[in-house]
Every structure is written in structure tokens, then in C-alpha cells.
Amino acid sequence: MRDASPAWGVVRAFMRSRCGVMLAEDQHYLLDARLGPLAREFRFPSVEAFVAAACGPSSEERLRRAVVDAMTTHETTFFRDRPFWKVLEEVIIPSFKTSGKRAIRVWSAACSTGQEPYSLAMLLEELWPAGAAASEIIATDVSEIALDKAREGSFTQLEVNRGLSTGKLVRFFEQNTLSYRVKESIRKRITFKADNLLSPTPGPKDCDLVMCRNVLIYFDENDRQQVQRRLRSSVITGGQLGFGATEMSSQGVPMGGGWYRPR
């Protein structure tokens, strides 16, 4: 293995400014491991030449996207972290039903390949079909490549084995040769679009639920605060913010399972 090349510094600065993701100096092995394949794919003579073209000023958008996708962690599963979904199922969704609401608006921020918003859409359909049909789920991520997969809604056997009960698989998926695809009736309830959590422009307005899980861990404290403020300003009065199991928020009153009611 080689020492940290200057190219690694360029990639770190690029990822930091483009999406807030902090990469450590000693993670330079990721340069070859993650960007080596891209350098070959885009026919650059070396990783360094690729980095110069992709992360420098006036770089091509498609190269920048490829770097963002390769350098971010997309690991996710259906119904990730049971307690989070249990609180949603047993407390939050029933409270919407009894409040007389007709529908809700949800933002799944940093949705990766879509398992999180699809889990929510399935749960809503099971617990509150009338509300689910009228509700809106907005799902965003900074990685266009993850979003493409999310939009497609096709998952492998290994992916559906994680977190999805057979009851839900049978009810909400159709089978293709090598994969399972979320049925159109559920897919069409989610609007997928690109969004950078660090963007200076506000996120979706008036959301009853905003979830942003397992991404702020990659950010520094300043960016984390900034993102939390942006998320909070998307929550309507009486709404809730949901974070990952290991992430704490100072943004409100804890409701359990990673859910907070903003003060």
C-alpha cells in the first residue's frame, strides 16, 4: 500500500464541501479501493488523473456524481432499527389517525436506495389505508446513483431478506426473474429527488414527519447543527423528527426509538 497521496487530500476536501462527509486522513486506502474502478471505467490513466478531473474546478457533473456515490456509505435495510418502527407503528401513526387528519406529509432525508421510504409506505398502507392513499412521501439523497436504484424499487433476495416479513413481501412486491420489485401502487406514493442536506435552500415544507437517519454520523459538529436546524424548519407544529439509533438530538423532546418532538 502506498502513502497518502495529495490526491486523497483533494478527495477529502471535495467530499467535505460537496456533502459534508468527513473522511479521515488515514483512510487513504479508499482512494484506490473506491476510485480505482471509476478511473478505469472512465478511462483515465491513473487514479490521480481521475481525481484531478473529477474533483477539480469546472469538473464534469457525471464525474462528480460518480465520486460522491463511490465515497458515501449506502448501507441500509427495510425496517432498520426495530424500536424506531415500533414507535411509529404503535404511537405515532395511531395518533395521526385519531387526530382527524386526512393525510400526512413525510420527508425521508438521505434515503439511500429507498428501503426507508418504502418501509414507511408499506406500514402506512397496512395501518391507515385511507390516509396512506392521500399522503405524500418525499425521499431525497445526495447520490443520484442511489436515487436511481430507489426509484426503480427492485431489490435482490439478500436485500428483501433483511427486515422484510414474508407477509409484506407477498403483499407489496412483484417477482421478476432475479429480483423483487415494489408494486407500482406503492412506488407511486414516493417522490424521489436529489437534495443535499447542507444546501442553503430550505427542504420540503410543512412535514408531519421528517426522518434523517445514519448520515449525520459522517458530519462534523457544525454541519450536524446546521442540518438539524434545516430539518427542524421542515417540521410542522405537532410533527416529529426521527434520527438513527446511535444519534442523539438536542432538537426536542425524546419520544422513544429515535423520535423527537421539536420544542
Binding site: 439478500l158 433483511r162 417477482q175
Partner: peptide, 30 residues
């Protein structure tokens, strides 16, 4: 593999079905 196999097993009385390939994590979760 496939949805019809799951339905057959559930109809026979299985509580859940896990199809290969799966990880140890997926097995324990289920």
C-alpha cells in the same frame, strides 16, 4: 425462490419463510 413458494409454505402453516441466500444476521433477525 419466489412468491408462490412462500405462499405454499405459509398455507401449510409456516410462520415465516427465509429464502437462500441469506446472512447469519438476516436469519437471527427473522
Amino acid at each position: 425462490a419466489g412468491l408462490s413458494a412462500i405462499q405454499e409454505a405459509i398455507a401449510a402453516g409456516a410462520t415465516e419463510v427465509l429464502m437462500k441466500p441469506y446472512t447469519a444476521e438476516a436469519l437471527v433477525e427473522r
